[in-house]
Design a binder for these strands. Structure first.
Lengths: 157, 157
DNA sequence: CTGCTTGCAAATAGTTTGCACGTTC
DNA sequence: GAACGTGCAAACTATTTGCAAGCAG
């Protein structure tokens, strides 16, 4: 968890013959130390703390480069922006569509499904590339107990 | 499949005390006869064939209304726009992140996972609200055979 | 020095919203 | 005719891109 992953990430770039620019270094540094998944915009803000000159467009382009190199991955959590994380950090996302709460679930959650899809559909599922949408315990309970309902989404989300 | 679902959809609106406007009628008619899931924009185009006056903004607002009423649902297929379908049409989406190809998979695919999530996380998963991202057979095979690689995404997607 | 990277600004895609007018019940 | 729905234009969010200048190797 608290391990220092930055050096090996930089190494990965070097080994690939990729350039080690200030922007890439700064972005990887932020990602290596982040304990949540951040959107491109959030990453941009974090990077700007130490390096205000780095433009959001560069963040997007760098993320795309790192994705192509297999170093970072992104997930679409539903409505909002995509969130990014290091590729070696494998897991599922459970996101509550009512309150937006996100938890991580073990990566092997879909082991069985993965097999079925491969066999029946020839489909190679990328489990950690999408979010599992639903309702968290709290929202489910509130939903049941609720009388009038002050939320946007009355009962069925 | 080819069943006439429109009347009962209109009834559902009436029963709820909702107004039966031209736009709602037209949109539901398109959705009842569509055999694919369409984005708001595509729906707008289809509706415009018989009713050019209906504005895209109205499509969005009507879709939101119908969603609130539990009549339609939408799914985020990854990058592009959300796609909409009638709520009684329950299934999973397998979407290839390389070629964009989409197939439907049976709704009970996740039965086991659903139980696990409920038990271990108190999480009530909405299986048909998200897409399962991965690679279809064709892209997987091409990816393996490819020598030079003319795609945006060399090997790992 | 040569080409990949970046900054900036502007374009783009998807969706939402304020407001005045029109339609449904 | 009152309340709700709609058209239009404009705002907004997330992301991409052309171009000229900058920096890594």
């Amino acid at each position: 968890m608290g391990k220092e992953r930055l050096p090996e990430l930089l190494d990965a770039l070097r080994r690939r013959g990729e350039r080690l620019t200030t922007a890439r270094h700064a972005l990887l540094s932020v990602m290596a130390h982040a304990d949540e998944h951040l959107s491109a915009d959030q990453l941009s803000v974090e990077v700007a703390r130490t390096n205000p000159a780095i433009h959001r467009a560069t963040i997007y382009r760098t993320l795309e480069t790192l994705r192509r190199l297999g170093i970072v991955e992104h997930t679409h959590l539903g409505h909002g922006p995509a969130v990014y994380h290091l590729a070696d950090d494998v897991h599922q996302h459970l996101v509550c569509e009512e309150c937006g709460w996100v938890v991580e679930a073990p990566a092997d959650l879909f082991a069985g499904v993965e097999e079925t899809l491969e066999r029946d559909f020839g489909f190679d599922m990328r489990a950690n590339h999408f979010a599992i949408v639903g309702r968290c315990r709290r929202c489910a309970e509130e939903g049941t107990e609720r009388v009038a309902g002050d939320r946007r989404t009355p009962t069925q989300a």
